[in-house]
Design a protein around this nucleic acid. Structure first.
Lengths: 212, 212
DNA sequence: TTTGTGCTGTTAAACGGTTAACGGCGATTC
DNA sequence: GAATCGCCGTTAACCGTTTAACAGCACAAA
């Protein structure tokens, strides 16, 4: 049972390795991968060990095999189909910037309440009304949802999704969602992230004597 | 020197408290705040202690005073002005959804390379060309930047920002930015977040027996 | 005024995660 | 073929964070 941090790093490793593979790298050493990921070599070795893959001394890890092993470990038996709730600015950004290149995870349906968005195809993804939600989630075998609706609508939407059998959500609304125990929620709060950056940037600036 | 987690929680507390204040709450207990934030009462007390504020028994914390204390602790002597790099879909989403309501942190300038975006006002924020960057960062006293450009452009943009004296960045590009030691970077990788949700949702589903 | 209750502030323990250390092995070189 | 070098796998120590426990206090009630 790996921690959230470990899963995040494994996912990061896979992306870095995929990029390295396209650049022709067949093998990588732990310290190389660590350099790319911003981690230590010991941590990379520890993470790789936890998924059961083994490299060889002097050769390091086989890039292709390691990618495969991470996939066997990370990719769940769940359906990889994702629903996007809310096709406002943020929803559109997610559709255009992030959904494209991932073959393992795919946004297959979008939902919105605005009549002028429903039944349109936006960035290659069809937008449906909320009334179709239950049926589409069932027929398309959707297990994950992205919450990109205004804060006031987030909780009702989450309730509907839970009733429809959704297993996990990535929530961009600045609200702590109440969900049943069996549903996993991860929050991405951009405002909080900005305040964190502001705080630590200020501290670093103080240390460097730029201000004060 | 608080940890990143602690700073995130303090920021979250402040938002929750602000909302509670508008709803008329003058006092809160640690377990109430913990319930809102998804933490434990002990953790709230520990965090509050770390910033030097004290409540009273039977009354708990004074909402207004606690907000003020968090502000004194979190809000840095840095300028609160932020630059947004890239006014594509994601940049526009950030401008419209997040920049609005925060008085402590404000996006005061946007930058893009697309000629049809430059010199336009988008969601109340003027978009400039990159050539104006150094001068505007200087005159507007901008200390923080949001990187919302394509991955291929992220590193050059970061280099320019560092040269211009930026102290911190919130990076949405799926690239690990190389920056000098005195600059703080926080990464928000939506793809990795989705894969994490997928993994833990799958595990939870297994535990609940939804899939086999 | 006295007693009781429930919360806070503080310290200590427990937990988890990161980092370090080291044995072992494969490749390469002489 | 032997030896040397460097990296991986593993275990253990270290560190930080979270959690628990307890003393003290303010207010309320009797």
């Amino acid at each position: 049972m790996p921690s959230e941090r470990t899963v995040e790093r494994l996912s990061l490793y896979r992306h870095l390795l995929s990029r390295a593979l396209t650049e022709g790298a067949a093998h990588v050493h732990s310290h190389q991968l660590a350099g790319m990921a911003g981690a230590t070599a010991a941590q990379v070795r520890h993470d790789v060990m936890s998924i059961g893959y083994s490299g060889t001394p002097t050769q390091g890890y086989e890039v292709e095999k390691l990618i495969e092993s991470i996939g066997e470990f990370l990719d769940t038996p769940l359906s990889r189909n994702i629903a996007l709730m809310g096709v406002g600015n943020l929803g559109r950004a997610i559709l255009s910037d992030f959904a494209v290149r991932r073959p393992t995870l795919k946004i297959v349906a979008a939902f919105d309440v605005e009549p002028d968005r429903v039944n349109r195809v936006i960035h290659g993804c069809r937008c449906h009304s909320l009334e179709e939600l239950q049926q589409i989630i069932w027929t398309q075998q959707i297990a994950i949802a992205i919450i990109a609706v205004p804060a006031s609508e987030a909780q009702p939407i989450a309730d509907t999704l839970c009733e429809a059998g959704i297993c996990g959500m990535l929530n961009f609304a600045p609200v702590r969602l109440q969900v049943p125990q069996g549903v996993f929620v991860d929050d991405v709060n951009i405002t909080i992230a900005l305040e964190k950056v502001s705080y630590f940037a200020g501290r670093k600036a103080l240390d460097r004597g730029r201000i004060g």
